[in-house]
Write a protein that binds this DNA or RNA. Structure first.
Lengths: 136, 136
DNA sequence: ACCATATTTTCCTATATAGGAAAACGTCAA
DNA sequence: TTGACGTTTTCCTATATAGGAAAATATGGT
């Protein structure tokens, strides 16, 4: 076996599970309560097997719980698995507003530094960037 | 063409781009400033081509910006694209703590309702679940 | 047991990776 | 120009989908 690992399984973690738009729709819908597969599929305009497969993925990742209710099966939200995702992304919150300014500031900083000493050393340039951003 | 749409492209949106752990590592590292590909690859223990490919994906989604710096190319973070992700996931924040209680509460509610009238109608059951959760 | 309803599970197909290796491309320096 | 260094781009391969259709599995009612 030489090639391939392809992409990680959708069931590997919440990140992969929510990469699919339809699964995000399902999760959003489930905020309104438990739904049987058939109703859920119709509401979201997808085929029943399709909905069932997506729910399976969500279940294996733990974002959804199911329980029997007579002839049908009700799916409910278990959002705890989304917390790590929220926290990871939240780690970038402070960079949203700065994203523009940071680059601009860096460029200005670099130009000034260049007038003083003609520093072309890339490592220095990187350090300069770090300094400009007051990071690390 | 009968089959096949496979998974959406990793370059389709931020959700797909950050589904890959290595790409998340790259983004996290870039919070410390701009990095040339070679240093970044070494720091994260991946091959240069690998790093370059991941950076390409991140660039196409707009999470990363690049700029020439002498012989090398510096990559910097542009976290604005993560904001929609954070907001979407944030929409589930209130369900994290409740995830357990909600299911328990629903079960209790269902049992009580069953003692009053022997309602086995699934649609009613779903509505009951919704009511129990004071949602939608 | 038999039937109708609800849901899941095969099959089958085309696509999109992710990784390794090697080749191609760019850029600066002498 | 030649060379060295840094980065990107093919090739190639195995895998993991996502979708549609059809078959297989429950589950409850009569």
């Amino acid at each position: 076996m030489v090639g391939g690992v392809a992409r990680a399984a959708t069931t590997s973690d919440a990140f992969n599970a929510i990469a699919e738009p339809q699964r995000r729709d399902i999760l959003a819908l489930l905020r309104s309560g438990e739904w049987p597969v058939s109703d859920l599929a119709q509401e979201l305009g997808m085929s029943m097997p399709q909905a069932s497969k997506h729910l399976r993925v969500l279940r294996e990742v733990g974002l959804v719980r199911d329980r029997k209710a007579g002839k049908q099966r009700l799916y409910g939200l278990d959002a705890r698995g989304l917390r790590p995702v929220h926290e990871w992304v939240g780690g970038f919150e402070r960079f949203w507003a700065e994203s523009f300014d940071r680059l601009d500031a860096y460029v200005r900083d670099l130009k000034q530094a260049r007038q003083g000493a003609d520093s072309q050393d890339p490592e220095q340039a990187r350090q300069g960037a770090n300094r400009a951003r007051r990071e690390e």
